[in-house]
């Protein structure tokens, strides 16, 4: 198996390399790809949409339809992880671990034993793959998470003027919640950001995106043609700021969708669908 695999791979690689000799050089500014379509985007991004970052304009305006499906792919991944993994079993795990808060003692209670009360202030439940409780990690992450979220909002809002945008900001927002879940435990995170919230917010994010396009359709223009939003925003027709605001609105939708789906996938993957104990 190994020999055939190695041979296949070497032959494929050699063939591909041989035929790659006709391709344009690396860094060639006059290749067909660099001269046919992209100058139009670079020259017209400020004029059409008043957005300096041409990548954002192409992503959300010229090829905004593709991006809508990209966001749907993200939502599909969340749905698929939920669909495949989630189990609402009521069987209890073989052993539960509790920590006695004043003394730091660990208790292990076997199946069938008497568990401490749910809201006991003295005993907190810890995961079976337990790392020692660390004051430093918990409090450092508490500080970092707030700044990560602030930076994420900055990235979303500045997608027009610097590298950034909805996807990047959404991933940062999602990772802040995942950081909270890693430094504390999964149950505490679930209490603050329930799975239902994540699922519904993800769908709402993509709905914001396609809803913006649908509003354009209702106003008479083609789908996702943000110019049709000018009367709603109080701008003259043909004002590039209408496109700029349209792009911003879809970026917000993308950020919501990506954030919720990242958290949703983490919930399902880290606990293998049981939402009982996480990483």
């Amino acid at each position: 198996m190994k020999i055939t695999g190695l041979l296949t791979v070497i032959i494929c690689g050699a063939l591909l390399t041989y035929y790659a000799m006709d391709f344009p050089d690396f860094g060639d500014g006059r290749s067909p790809a660099n001269t046919y379509l992209s100058p139009h985007f670079l020259e017209n991004t400020m004029h059409d949409a008043h957005v300096p970052n041409s990548v954002t304009t192409i992503l959300a305006d010229y090829r905004g339809y593709d991006t809508m499906y990209e966001t749907t792919v993200v939502l599909t991944a969340g749905l698929a992880c939920f669909f495949l993994l989630r189990r609402k079993e009521s069987t209890s795990p073989p052993a539960r671990f509790f920590r006695h808060v004043p003394t730091g003692l660990t208790l292990r209670i076997e199946e069938g034993g008497k568990l401490p009360a749910e809201n006991s202030k003295v005993f907190t439940r810890i995961d079976s793959l337990w790392a020692p409780d660390s004051l430093i990690i918990r409090n450092t992450c508490r500080l970092i998470i707030a700044f990560v979220q602030l930076f994420a909002l900055y990235v979303v809002a500045h997608g027009h003027y610097s590298p950034g945008g909805g996807f990047q900001g959404g991933v940062l927002l999602g990772s802040s919640i995942i950081l909270f879940s890693i430094s504390n435990d999964l149950r505490r995170t679930l209490k603050r950001f329930r799975e239902k919230t994540a699922a519904v917010l993800g769908a709402i994010g993509v709905l914001i995106y396609s809803g913006t396009g649908f509003v354009c359709l209702l106003m008479g223009a083609h789908f996702l043609n943000y110019e049709a939003l000018s009367p709603l925003l109080g701008l003259k027709t043909g004002d590039p700021m209408a496109r700029s605001h349209g792009i911003f609105s879809v970026e917000i939708g993308v950020a919501f969708a990506v954030m919720s789906v990242m958290i949703w996938i983490y919930y399902n993957l880290s606990s293998a669908g049981k939402h009982d104990e996480g990483l």
Binding site: N34, F41, L42, S54
Partner: peptide, 22 residues
């Protein structure tokens, strides 16, 4: 990088920036 200067009326030379489409 393909972020053009924030001047709505300046002419942009596409050859000065890398290709944003890929």
């Amino acid at each position: 990088i393909p972020i053009v200067p924030y001047d709505a009326h300046a002419a942009v030379q596409a050859a000065d920036f890398i290709n944003p489409l890929p």
